[in-house]
């Protein structure tokens, strides 16, 4: 099969540090690379990345369940992440270490009438096939909670 390459275009936004992401006919704005301000009006690039991982896992689980004809009443994921060295990102004097995401925890909650073993098999397949979960595999801690 031939490879497929996605392309997005990113330009500087009118804000101080942000960017605008252009994807096909869509666009969205991102704030700074990472922000520690809980009241910041923009979504940071790190938050988009965490959201993307959650979306990847949720979408993949739903796709696999649909293929297996497992009805899900509701699916929800919470994702948290932490930089290895926020100090390096913030340019603290003498800071060392990688500013990359060092840890991310994804917890997926599923509500369904299906048998739990069936859902867990679908979850395992979803994780095997999820593009972003596999990209970030080394730092991800993934958990599925099933409510029947």
């Amino acid at each position: 099969m031939e490879g497929f390459k996605w392309k997005v275009r990113v330009t500087g936004s009118s804000g101080k540090e942000g960017a605008v992401v252009h994807v096909r006919q869509h666009r969205f704005e991102s704030g700074s690379a990472a922000s520690f301000d809980v009241e910041h009006p923009e979504v940071s690039a790190v938050e988009y990345a965490l959201g993307a991982v959650g979306a990847d896992v949720v979408a993949m689980l739903r796709a696999v369940c649909r293929e297996r004809r497992i009805a899900l009443d509701a699916v929800e994921a919470t994702v948290s992440g932490e930089l290895g060295s926020a100090e390096t990102y913030l340019n603290v004097v003498d800071a060392k270490g990688s500013p990359g995401l060092a840890r991310a925890e994804v917890t997926v909650f599923v509500s369904t009438m299906a048998a739990e073993p069936e859902v867990r098999e679908a979850w395992a397949e979803a994780l095997r096939r999820s593009p972003l979960a596999n990209t970030l595999g080394g730092i991800l801690n993934l958990e599925l909670r099933v409510d029947i």
Partner: peptide, 12 residues
């Protein structure tokens, strides 16, 4: 002194 990343909000 950056004792917590949230301090950056103050200084920004």
């Amino acid at each position: 002194v950056l004792y917590n990343p949230k301090v950056t909000v103050i200084w920004d």
